[in-house]
Amino acid sequence: MKKRLAFFPIVLSFYSNQLLAQNFRILSLNFKPMFGNSVLQLNDSVYKLNKNDSIQFETLKFYVSAIEFWNNSAPVWIEPNSFHLMDASDSNTLKLAFKVPSDMIYAEIKFKLGIDSLTNVSGAIGGDLDPTKGMYWTWQSGYVNFKLEGKSNLCRSRKHEFQFHLGGYTHPYNALQTISLLTSNLQDVSIKFDLKTFLSDVDLENKPSVMSPNKDALILSNQLGKLFKIKE
């Protein structure tokens, strides 16, 4: 017993040397859905596009995938198996943390809004991609990349509801968005996207529902992709 204990400090120092040899830092991405200047809240908060309207949100869920950090036009860190379901009803999901080499310098963050076509045709997958997460179409295979639901007096639909389930992975309606954001080697990054801008371009009155992969879904997805911004 004594003999074994004698080895203990040696073993410990060996591992601590190993740890010192590879220094890491934690880099965090924090996704912030906004409505104008305020952070968007689900359910009770009421928002306005214009004077006489009102908008409430019930669901906001979307996939962020293929996260990469770039410098000088080359990737410096790529997250393996990078699929994250963001759910505004659970703020923990909106914060991502990565352990990267401490000397890593980056100037650009790239990610995809949605799920790539290969993953879409790969059968049942678990974790954030599990079909029980409410982000998989059942009547026609494919992931919903982005889901926004709520109500507004502008909508002429039943119960004044709007539903945007945006997705589609096949040509010509591949809705996946690649987003590249320039930044300055930040430790904690806030990525904001303004749903007021998004809804201002949507015809809430006549088209309050887009729920299949089609031309409308493609147009709205393209608009969404342009809204992600880093606020320093």
Binding site: T138, S141, G142
Partner: peptide, 28 residues
Amino acid sequence: GAINHLDMQALAPISHPDEMGESIEHVI
């Protein structure tokens, strides 16, 4: 051909209102 993979096939009848009318979440 609406379903692209055998694994995903069962989701369609489970959730179709005229077939099993259930949700995969509730089945689980």
